[in-house]
Design a binder for these strands. Structure first.
Lengths: 322, 322
DNA sequence: CTGTTAGCGCGTTCAT
DNA sequence: ATGAACGCGCTAACAG
């Protein structure tokens, strides 16, 4: 068939016109299965994530949109494929069966069996996040070190000397979830660098847990004047606990929510100062990485670490006089 | 090849064993493209939704999980396919090109061009929600009539006589978004039935909009003692406005959030009484509908309308004495 | 119950 | 610059 028309070799202008006309008239559509079979390539990228990863939150939406767009511009479809955590094999088989050409893996932990399976089968993939071991792996991630450093600096510059950090759950820490581990370490390092009295705690992803946690911190360290939170759900509890104690934000206590969005910050009163999760950038970059791996292009040395920018709200202010 | 083994016809126990052994040893995987080509069926169901439909919210997660599971049990993959609103043709072409066998369409409006395109091309689909016209269309939806009736009844039973309803945006009403239209109408009908003084307003999907809207209602109708909200984001503003005016929940004013989840309700203080969006049920039912259409099975007459159950919180109570 | 065979609709290579 | 032929790896239909 004259189907090389679809871009493969030089074509006569007139011939092309004839073909295009025929295509219109017959309402012709290229068959994806036949193309995939012949070309040995599905032109599908799979975005796999744990089932209901906190319910496909706002950040995911932004990420997926950017990734989707980038993929489309390159002639690929991005499809979101939810899997339970235990289904390592299924993730790998998506590619081995030719359903997808490559995989974007979200919510990776420091030791992630899905990644082991992918590596063992030589399946092309890019991680959103990082395993502990990195060589030979393609990834993009939030720069937690930089983000937490900036967060601590912001508060230290405002005169705060005792800062608490409300992290993700203990479970996520125990299972080696990268963001939890990295953020904790970075917070500590930044606090030491600025001579800050630091408290860090984990909290389950619920407002109630955040409230209890915050309450406990205030009991133990009443001199705490600032909270950095990296737990969207628990943050609701943090502000509740402050309200319970008649502590005003930001006059008595400052709250800085990191790796979230101003939109979420706007749900509070006053609106939270946030450090925005760079979902868009991560989405674009991760697809670029994966495509480079797929097409054998040299994995261009672009930044793999993306930072969260400070988005001023009304929840951080100068430390109160004592 | 003896591949009918994979379920198509009776097989000798021993033959089966031999084949299975060979499969293990060679690490064999069936090729999806070849299967699709030969069988003229991709075994993929596409869940299409507008790009960043409010950021793939919590309800979507629940829906997707259930749909995904149901599809898998039937030997299908459910893949989430984000599209911009304007890309009607692309949605249709997914199936025409054989990328997917059928489509689940989310966020359908009363007059939805995507649906028109699907109908014109005879593509199998099921709507999550309903167009105005329904015949020959497969759908499942939330029972807004019932939900709003239950909501009004709940509050009326508590003695409230003036109730305000905070709906989705004016834009969604203007563009004929089913839930917005149906909920408004149902609220009115229910209020009339119970002799309630009803106010209904639309609000943009932001806390600020919810706050201003609520404030305006309280100015105009200070006798309002209860709010029904169907706008997750704006509801944050509703409670802020009440707090601004020193109105206590539920002593002075009751708040009932419908078509949301107790988890979201828990982000409030006190926790909101909610009517839970039946994401799980909708996900399961919608895939069942679509599969019935695909496999030519008689579209079994199961309920297409699913109701939201009341989940008690602490934000509704008896109407205050005047 | 089991072995064999003919396409499915494209990409690709080989002629022209 | 174009047409023709082959085969991607399977399913389904047909013999045995």
């Amino acid at each position: 068939m004259s189907y090389a028309l679809s871009g493969a070799r030089p074509i006569g202008t007139e011939t092309r016109a004839r073909v295009m006309a025929a295509i219109k008239e017959l309402g012709f559509e290229r068959n994806a299965a036949a193309r995939s079979l012949a070309a040995r390539r599905s032109h599908v990228l799979a975005l796999v994530l744990p089932t209901v990863a906190g319910g496909l939150s706002g950040t995911l939406g932004e990420f997926a949109q950017a990734a989707s767009q980038t993929a489309r511009d390159a002639g690929y479809h991005l499809v979101i494929w939810p899997f339970d955590r235990e289904e390592h094999a299924e993730v790998r088989d998506l590619v081995r069966q030719g359903q997808a050409d490559g995989v974007l893996v979200m919510e990776v932990s420091l030791h992630d069996e899905r990644i082991d399976a992918l590596l063992a089968s030589q399946v092309p993939f890019t991680m959103i996040g990082r395993t502990a071991e990195l060589d030979g792996r393609s990834w993009v991630d939030i720069d937690f070190e930089r983000t937490l450093t900036d967060a601590v600096d912001h508060l230290a510059d405002l005169g705060h000397t005792t800062i608490a950090f409300v992290n993700h759950s203990q479970h996520s820490l125990d299972t080696g979830y990268g963001p939890t581990v990295r953020a904790r370490d970075a917070f500590h390092a930044a606090a030491v660098a600025r001579g800050i009295h630091a408290t860090d705690v984990t909290s389950d992803e619920s407002p109630l847990a955040g409230r209890l946690t915050t309450s406990a911190i205030l009991d133990e360290r009443p001199e705490t004047t600032a909270f950095v939170t990296m737990n969207e759900t628990a943050t609701f509890g943090v502000t509740q606990a402050l309200r319970d104690r008649r502590l005003r934000v930001p006059d008595d206590v400052s709250v800085l929510a990191v790796v979230t969005s101003p939109e979420v910050g706007a749900m509070y009163h006053p609106p939270l100062t946030t450090m925005r999760a760079p979902g868009h950038e991560l989405g674009r970059r991760s697809v670029e990485e994966l495509l480079a791996a797929l097409e054998g292009t040299a994995p261009r040395e672009a930044p793999r670490l993306v930072t969260c920018a400070l988005s001023p709200g009304a929840s951080t202010g100068p430390a109160p006089r004592r």
